Simulated assay, not measured.
Amino acid sequence: MRFKDKVALVMGGNSGMGLATAKALAAEGAKVHLTGRNQQTIDEAVAAIPGSRGYRADIADIASSEAVVSAIEAEDGRIDVLYINAGVGGFAPLRAITPESWDQTHSINLKGCVFALQKAVRIISKGGAIVVTGSIGAHGALPGNGVYAAAKGGLYAAMKVFAAELVGEGIRLNMVSPGPIDTPLLHRNPGMSDADVATLKQRMIESIPMHRMGESDEVAKAVLFLASEDASFITAANLFVDGGLLELR
């Protein structure tokens, strides 16, 4: 019960790693608020997490993040744990990148996350903990991953700066960077068929020292560690959850 009586907001908490984290936070005593873009999966998540609250919000829409924070402030007055997990993927080689695909990915994975943090930190006080989802894609050179890597790399750089700005206020900010995790996001890559996804997964598995993909629950455990008092002397860290993919190259 590391989060007993804590108020938590999981942005992108209606599926995959976000949902697993929302469930784990609630299981350890937190009151959970979660966001997502799909009302059906939001409703399903709320039904599965007793006492939780769900909000339909697009992190690319800065006003919607502000509305969520204001609703939580009105109900609970504060946020103790913030997990920013909303994001999109997609692959395109250099010659196939379009301004539209660049802007869409960056509006969610970088700009949206930064401004969601800006809005939420208004009601996070001393002792609060923030975790943001990065990616090992920001630290490797996977062909076709340039747009996503640029967004997540920018997010990593920005979060280190923000951690330095917040440390004097007693607020910790850390990043968790998953490797190949079997989540619904993997199956939502534009232009990729089921066969393409299966081929991609097999290639990933072959490259991972542990010879398997990770599970959402394994990422959730890392998030809860960084958000808890178990990590009270840790800030600005970037924890890889990747089966050794980067570390054992």
Rank of each mutant, 00 (worst) to 15 (best):
I42H: 07
D43A: 15
D43V: 03
E44M: 09
E44T: 09
V46P: 06
I49M: 11
S52C: 05
G54P: 13
Y55I: 05
A57T: 11
D58A: 04
D61G: 07
I62V: 14
S64N: 05
S65Y: 00
A67R: 14
V68F: 08
V69F: 03
S70M: 06
E73Y: 08
E73S: 13
E73A: 14
A74D: 13
D76T: 06
G77V: 04
R78T: 12
R78V: 12
D80E: 07
D80G: 03
L82T: 09
G87A: 09
G89Y: 03
G90V: 09
G90P: 09
P93V: 12
L94E: 06
L94T: 15
R95N: 09
R95I: 10
A96V: 04
I97T: 13
I97P: 00
T98W: 05
T98F: 06
P99T: 07
S101K: 08
S101N: 11
D103K: 10
Q104M: 12
T105Q: 15
H106E: 01
I108Y: 07
N109C: 07
L110A: 09
K111H: 07
G112S: 08
F115G: 08
F115L: 13
K119L: 00
K119A: 15
A120V: 05
A120E: 00
V121Q: 12
V121I: 14
I124T: 08
S125L: 02
G127E: 06
A129C: 12
A129P: 01
A129R: 10
V131Y: 02
T133A: 14
G134T: 05
I136K: 10
H139S: 11
H139K: 12
L142C: 00
G144M: 08
N145Y: 09
N145M: 07
G146A: 14
G146P: 00
V147A: 11
V147T: 14
Y148M: 01
A150C: 06
G153E: 05
G153F: 04
G154M: 05
L155F: 02
L155G: 01
A157F: 03
A157T: 12
A158S: 12
M159P: 04
K160F: 02
V161A: 15
V161G: 05
F162V: 14
F162Y: 15
A163S: 15
L166N: 00
N174M: 07
N174R: 06
V176M: 07
V176G: 06
